[in-house]
Amino acid sequence: MAVPLYQAKAEFFRMLGHPVRIRVLELLGERPRQVRELLAEIDIEASSLSQQLGVLRRAGIVTSRREGTAVTYALAGPDVADLMRAARRILTEMLVGHVELLEALEAQQEPDTDDSRPAATVDSAGR
């Protein structure tokens, strides 16, 4: 039985759900990079980076090419870079909405000089 498309999409997004993988995809969206370049950009142990690159490679999102002792990684196609740009646009729009809401809330905030509130009292025991 075939996996429903929505389930396949959920698995795809779950596979993307790691900060290091997202950072790798962002960097590779700029240009192919050798592992040493990725290590210089991402604060992570080499073994952990290798593990995350393996996940992306097995998923078919990145490709690797060995050049002597160096391994260069690249995005498998332009769609992944498009997805990263789309995610950035969506997050930007969400944050702008939050900023606008925050500004509206701050504009509605009453001044702290409201004398109609009862003053806090402290008894001799400090309560």
Rank of each mutant, 00 (worst) to 15 (best):
H98C: 08
L95Q: 06
L83W: 02
L102I: 11
I90T: 05
A76W: 01
L75F: 05
V71T: 06
L83E: 01
L105H: 09
D82E: 12
L95R: 13
M84E: 07
R89W: 06
V96R: 15
L83S: 01
E106A: 14
L101M: 10
T69V: 04
L95T: 09
T69D: 00
T92Y: 10
D82I: 08
L105Y: 11
T92P: 00
A87G: 05
E106D: 02
R88C: 11
H98M: 09
L101H: 12
M94G: 03
I90C: 02
A76R: 11
V80P: 01
A74N: 15
V71I: 15
T69G: 00
V99F: 04
E93M: 13
L101Y: 11
Y73R: 00
V80W: 05
T72L: 03
G77M: 14
D79I: 08
A87L: 15
E106N: 02
G77P: 08
V71W: 01
V96G: 01
L101Q: 12
L95H: 08
E93K: 09
V80E: 05
A74K: 04
E93R: 15
L83N: 01
H98T: 13
V96N: 08
A104R: 07
L75M: 11
R89E: 07
H98D: 14
G97D: 06
V96D: 13
V71N: 00
V80D: 01
D82H: 15
L91D: 10
A104F: 06
V99G: 02
T72R: 10
E106I: 10
M84P: 07
Y73I: 00
A76I: 02
R89Y: 07
A70I: 02
L95Y: 11
L95S: 04
I90S: 06
A87M: 14
G77T: 15
R85I: 10
E106Y: 03
I90W: 10
